[in-house]
């Protein structure tokens, strides 16, 4: 069992990065690694409520974030600075995520065996 951090960095609907990174995260959790996920930069947009957005022509995978509890993924982090830069309030986020600043992100990364970026 390894401590593995996935850093999501991409906006939700202009590429498949976020979606494929989510699949990877779930696969890691399914084989009992201790996984955590950090939403950073434009990936914070993945956390805004997006129920129906068929016009994007990409699967609405952010709705699957609610699976985290079923996969025992309880370390969900969001970069505070990224939210501020985009004027997003924590109350707007669709799932519970812990706000972290630069020092906390540094500490988070230092606790990992492996770090994967989307």
């Amino acid at each position: 069992m390894q401590n593995i951090l996935l850093i999501q960095r991409h906006a939700p609907f202009n590429s498949s990065h976020g979606r494929e990174a989510l699949d990877l995260l779930l696969a890691m959790a399914a084989v009992e690694h201790q996984v955590s996920v950090l939403f950073s930069a434009d990936a914070v947009y993945q956390l805004l409520p997006t129920q129906e957005q068929a016009a994007f022509r990409l699967k609405a995978y952010p709705r699957s974030f609610k699976l985290f509890a079923l996969y025992d993924i309880d370390q969900v982090y969001v970069c505070q600075a990224s939210l501020l830069q985009r004027n997003i309030q924590p109350s707007q986020l669709s799932i519970n995520a812990q706000l972290v600043d630069a020092a906390q992100i540094q500490q988070l990364i230092s606790q990992q065996h492996q770090v994967i970026c989307s």
Binding site: S64, K66, L67
Partner: peptide, 17 residues
């Protein structure tokens, strides 16, 4: 609810809950 079909492992867990 989750916009995805459950694989067996997660189906078992969700049903147990």
């Amino acid at each position: 609810e989750f916009n995805t079909s459950p694989a067996i492992r997660v189906l078992v867990k969700a049903m147990a809950q």
